[in-house]
Design a protein around this nucleic acid. Structure first.
Lengths: 200, 200
DNA sequence: GCGTACGAGTGACAGCCGTCATCCGCTGCT
DNA sequence: AGCAGCGGATGACGGCTGTCACTCGTACGC
């Protein structure tokens, strides 16, 4: 019997996935939670065999959860189930030692299958995504990422400078650097590209 | 017996929702499809009582589907199930005469409940969203929307002008108008706000 | 037929953006 | 001590952005 905890913020999807997994005779959903903090609490209380988690959740993200599980050396596997086919996300997940990484685009049967594989000690990584993940690494450094995030919200260089305790000109230098590294024409395209790749 | 067709692009969610609905004894899922065109075909073939559809799908969106159903006067109800709490979307859905509009954030039981209500001829609209929808209408005109969409992709005024066969200056005038109407400081914020409201 | 509202364009101005060369201070290496 | 490397700052340049006042044509209302 595979004992599962499910973390997913959209209630309807959470309910539906629970229904789906409960159809499997060898899988038992111990509980389901809507955010990262709740997941962390229930994780320690219920001690499931596998944590199935989304990435984008209020509070702790699924990636941060996976990192915590690894850091505390909890004896359980983590399977990420997400909408985002972003190479950067997969890489961070692998660095956190997750057992599985599935896209919500892949067929429903794959989920139970992946849980079994991971429970046996194997890995279940979306194959096409796995290729991409090693092809292009994030070329941005910390400052560039910070600056790009804020610029993407529509903030001007001076606003960003104030928030990061940098000078107006330095912010523009970092933005220029980021734009150059990503091979695009302006901050907006840079933001969009970085976001799409899962780098910010 | 309520006969349902399900349209949802994410395969895993599609499978999970099917499992969820099949648990209900008075609901039968006739089929499920992954995009708008397929939904339109199956709609005519299977003649379900209710179409349950996502909004963001390849090809036809759920909103366009609902419009078609209305225009062809097909004898079925439409229930939208979406991630997006955007007033503009709800308003367009209501204009298209949908029977229900639910958020994936609301609990799973609500779905079956909503299907029954709608099947009886009632309406199932997410209550908080319903309020918002009538409060703020889209202040933008067609040109402003077009220009804003392209600006949001990082295009410069001159590029946009070329694509729309307008002059460089006119594009900037429209952008300025949009920025003013939305009460923000620049094109990026304008784009984000308009998008969040479901106006573009 | 006349006023007017509307879509589109023009020109000017101030300020912001993207780029680049250069500089400063600090850390680490040897 | 000497030097390279790095994070950050500076200043200048040209181009783009956001704003505004004004013009022009054309369709519409009466």
């Amino acid at each position: 019997m595979i004992r599962v905890l499910l973390a997913e913020d959209q209630a309807m999807v959470r309910g539906a996935l629970t229904a789906l997994l409960n159809l499997e005779s060898d899988i038992e959903v111990l509980g389901s939670v809507a955010d990262g903090e709740a997941a962390w609490r229930e994780l320690q209380r219920l001690k499931p065999d596998v944590l199935v988690t989304d990435i984008e959740m209020p509070g702790l993200t699924g990636l941060e959860l996976a990192q915590r599980v690894r850091r505390h050396e909890l004896p359980m596997k983590v399977v990420i189930v997400t909408t985002f086919a972003r190479p950067g996300f997969l890489r961070r997940a692998l660095d956190a030692g997750v057992g599985g990484y599935l896209l919500k685009d892949s067929p429903a049967e794959k989920l139970a299958e992946a849980l079994r594989t991971v429970h046996r000690g194997g890995r279940a990584i979306d194959p096409e995504l796995a290729l991409e993940a090693w092809s292009d690494a994030d070329p941005l450094n910390d400052r560039e990422r910070q600056v790009l995030r804020l610029a993407g919200e529509g903030q001007a260089a001076s606003d960003i400078a104030q928030q990061l305790n940098l000078s107006h000109g330095t912010v523009r230098n970092y933005l220029s650097e980021a734009i150059g590294k990503l091979g695009v024409a302006n901050r907006i395209e840079a933001y969009r590209l970085a976001r799409q790749k899962g780098w910010l």
